[in-house]
Amino acid sequence: MPELPEVEVLVRHLDPQLRGQAIRQVELLRPSILFPPDPTPADRVLRGRRIRHVRRRGKYICVELDPAPGVPGLFWMHLGMTGRLWLQPAGAPLPPHTRMFWDLNRARLVFSDPRGFGRSGWDEAPLRRLGPEPLERTFTAARLGALLVCSRQLLKVRLLDQTVVAGLGNIYVCESLWEAGLSPVRRSDRLAGTEVARLVAAIRRVLRRAIRFGSKLNLDWTGTGRDRLFYFGRVAGSSSPPRERFAVYEREGDPCRRCGAPIRRIVLAGRGTYFCPGCQP
């Protein structure tokens, strides 16, 4: 599933290309992509609107539209596990698993999703439920600490909750906990203030590093590459895959890059969790 860095890279790519474009037609090929279900045709709400800006909120792609009386000013899209969103020439054939497309004045915006877990809509309730953005100044140790101390959940499980930190997923929680030197099986309400501050700094570093990494690579729009990287393709002009990005994720049995102990994998809340037993006590 795409996490905050992948969605951020995608938004940075799409925003300059979509700004100012008018929506000429909208087709929902699978109406269940709209959440919550709404009998109002999406084409009626969106046709003729002009795109002002594309931004990210957590893992959501938010398309801000020009104001119009009686209709929403924002349309969001969530890629789910396998969703992809990209621009293609207006006359190009639709790819397999297309769930929705927008005909614009200069191109076509396509939402493709093989497994069908992606969602979209104009009801902003899902956005309002999200926790703080980890790359904004409002994401402080005091704020995160208040969200951790009220729960007895294991730290890894708590950080996956989108009402606690918006945009974090399995990969970057594992990486952030390693960066901060904190065990994924610590109880959330038992972290010291200094440990929470260390965790906030680690989350920021890990996410920024991943965004820098993705920003340097070609985007693999259709997912035909073999790098197993969502949207992130190969370095321009290179025939070899990018270097390994992760400190612990999917490195079970490999030596820790900090202390040399073998990386372990356990399952927490149904998710594979990677950590170093030597330096994440």
Rank of each mutant, 00 (worst) to 15 (best):
V149L: 13
S239R: 12
P255F: 06
L199Y: 02
L207R: 09
R228F: 15
E133I: 06
T140P: 13
S188P: 13
S188H: 10
N170W: 08
L155P: 06
L217K: 01
K216Q: 15
V206M: 08
I211V: 15
A197C: 02
C174H: 04
S238W: 01
V164Y: 08
L177D: 09
L159M: 09
Y249W: 12
S151K: 12
P242I: 00
K216D: 12
V149A: 11
G169F: 04
E133V: 00
V165R: 02
S239P: 01
L154S: 10
V164S: 06
R205Y: 01
G167K: 03
F230Q: 05
C256S: 10
Y231C: 07
R190A: 11
L160N: 01
L217M: 14
P184M: 05
A146L: 11
K156L: 02
A146N: 12
V165P: 12
L199S: 11
L182D: 04
I203L: 10
R204D: 07
A141V: 01
P242Y: 04
L154A: 09
V157S: 14
V165Q: 12
A210Q: 05
L217H: 15
N218D: 08
R243P: 04
G169A: 11
R208D: 13
V185P: 01
R243M: 01
R243E: 14
S176D: 10
A146M: 07
C174F: 00
L182I: 08
I211S: 06
K216P: 00
V196R: 12
R204S: 08
R226F: 03
L135N: 11
D189G: 05
E244R: 09
F139A: 12
G233A: 12
S239I: 06
R186L: 15
F139V: 05
Q153T: 04
G214P: 07
S238F: 03
N218L: 14
F213I: 13
V165H: 10
R205A: 15
T163V: 01
A141L: 06
V149D: 03
S151E: 03
T138N: 08
G237H: 05
Q153N: 14
G193V: 10
R243L: 09
S240A: 12
A247I: 01
V206G: 13
L148E: 04
E195S: 07
R208W: 09
T194Q: 12
A180C: 09
L217S: 03
S240R: 14
V157K: 05
